[in-house]
Every structure is written in structure tokens, then in C-alpha cells.
Design a protein around this nucleic acid. Sequence first.
DNA 1: CTATTTGCAAAGCATTTGCACATTT
DNA 2: AAATGTGCAAATGCTTTGCAAATAG
Lengths: 146, 146
Amino acid sequence: MNLRHADVLKNSNLKATPKRLALMSLLAQASVYLGPQEIWDALRKEFKTLGLPTVYRNLEELVDAGLVTRIHHPNRQLYYYLCQNPSHHHHFICLECGRVEDIDFCAEAQLAKEVNRKHQGKVLSHVLQVNGLCRLCMNGRGKALK
Amino acid sequence: MNLRHADVLKNSNLKATPKRLALMSLLAQASVYLGPQEIWDALRKEFKTLGLPTVYRNLEELVDAGLVTRIHHPNRQLYYYLCQNPSHHHHFICLECGRVEDIDFCAEAQLAKEVNRKHQGKVLSHVLQVNGLCRLCMNGRGKALK
DNA sequence: CTATTTGCAAAGCATTTGCACATTT
DNA sequence: AAATGTGCAAATGCTTTGCAAATAG
């Protein structure tokens, strides 16, 4: 598991430091998108001296390397997630608790056609962000993340 | 034109101040999404003493009233647009010049089905953000907005 | 040994707030 | 006159940067 992360980092010319590996493990385990602060709080339990700027820097490096996805939450903060295809991000965001889940549905083909026809532009990536209520909050069992 | 804006404001219990009307006119004319700074710069030509906080406050009031749409640009800033259906925003964003255009294409029906099936959640609104190159930038004729 | 990475403190910058004054209704 | 809107200055809060010390390969 951590061996894999180390290899992935090496392929991107990033050094496999303990903190970076821990960050990747945290993201890999997370079932929701995490913000820098939450990540910092979680990792500081193990690394007492970890600085918040290091979290930010690592997250952006991982984003640049295409290993991590960054989304804009309606609450105006950034959230991160370990993701596969960086050009194809579909999220379901619960407006009540802040939970973010991936959505499989994609209409990329129609989308590209539409953009070509009407805008004559070129699609490089797309983000579908669906705001709503998750099943937990619909049943009053959601915990507000924010 | 301005009469209509005044009425719309009245319906939302907002006073029709000259600055607010000018802001609405500016948004109504704009063919691209505008940021607070751009809006401030534009309106200050007419209103020398206009404060930036006033622009922010008015934009948010208009968003709250459902008269204006706010989107999160990949450059991490907020952009505003006079818009009809606040639950249905599809944007094409040019990564080169920052231009934002509306996209008509929508797959809401399939989307709702997918969310219901897999996430068991409720869709309240959705945003489809397509990042790419606009026709101007593809031809080297785009002006970087940012 | 060299290039990265990190911690710390300080800076940046878009956005927000407090409050007295001005304007709309 | 009462409620709302505005300017100004200052505060907020997330994010970034500079730089010297630490660490990975």
C-alpha cells in the first residue's frame, strides 16, 4: 500500500517523505473530500511539528502531478481527494453536512458535441457538481462537517 | 429596462438605489461572467465614491434574491452573472482568457436518476463546469481577462 | 553531496465587518 | 421618520512565500 504510494511519487519526481506518504494514505482512506485544515488536524496527531503550509504545498504538488483532485465547495473552500481521471470529476455535494461523493454518470460525448457546435471551443476537462441532500441528512442522521 | 430592474428589486424587498441599478444593468449587458473587481472598476467610472464592499454586498444580496448567479472559477475567484434559473448553471470556462459562457446542454433527468439510484440523495441544484479553450484563444485572438 | 522538502514567521489578497452617515420609501 | 444602503477603515481567514535548517535519494 505505502509501497505503491512511494512508487507513484517516484514516477512524478516527488520524494517519498513520511509526511507525504501519510497524506496520501489519509486521502486514500477518506470517503469524503477533505480540506487542508482537516488534513492538517488529522496528520498532526502523528507528526507534531507538521506545518500547515506543508499540507498546502503537498496537496498542490499532488494536484499538479495529477494524483489528487481539487474541487471548489459551495462554502468557498478547497477540498481534495485522491482521484484517477483528473479531467473527469463529478461530485455530489451535500449542502447540509458538506459530504462529497463521486458520481459515475457522465455525458461527455454529448457535452463535447454541444460545445463544439455552439461555442466552437475545445473541451479540456469538465466538472459536474450536484448540490443536494445526502441520504443521511435526508433522514436527519447527517453530521455537519462544517 | 431600468424600470424592469427597479420592479424586480422591489419584489425582492431591495431598494432601487442608483448604484444597484447600475450594477444590474452592467450584469445584464455583460456577455461574460464578471468578478467584483472588474465590476467595481466599471462602475467607478460613473460613481466616483463607490466602495468595493458595496459591490460585494450588492452581489451577494442579488445572489440571495436569486437574481444573480455566482460561480467558482478555477482561478479561485468568484464571478457573477445575471441569470434565470438558479438551480441550473452550465458554464464553459476558457482556461486561457477566463471567459465564461453559458452552456445549454443539460442531462438533468439522467443525473437525478443516477443520484437517486446510487447515492439515494436528493438533487437540489447542479453546476456543470466545462474547462477548455474558447474559439478566440484557439485562434490566438483571445485577450486574457486575468 | 545535491536537490527537495519542511517549519516558522510573515506576507498576500480576496472578502467581510463595524459603524457613522446618507439615501430610499 | 423608519428601514435600508453606503463609504471608509480595519479585520478576517484562507492561502502563499521567503529563507534557513533538515531530509531523501
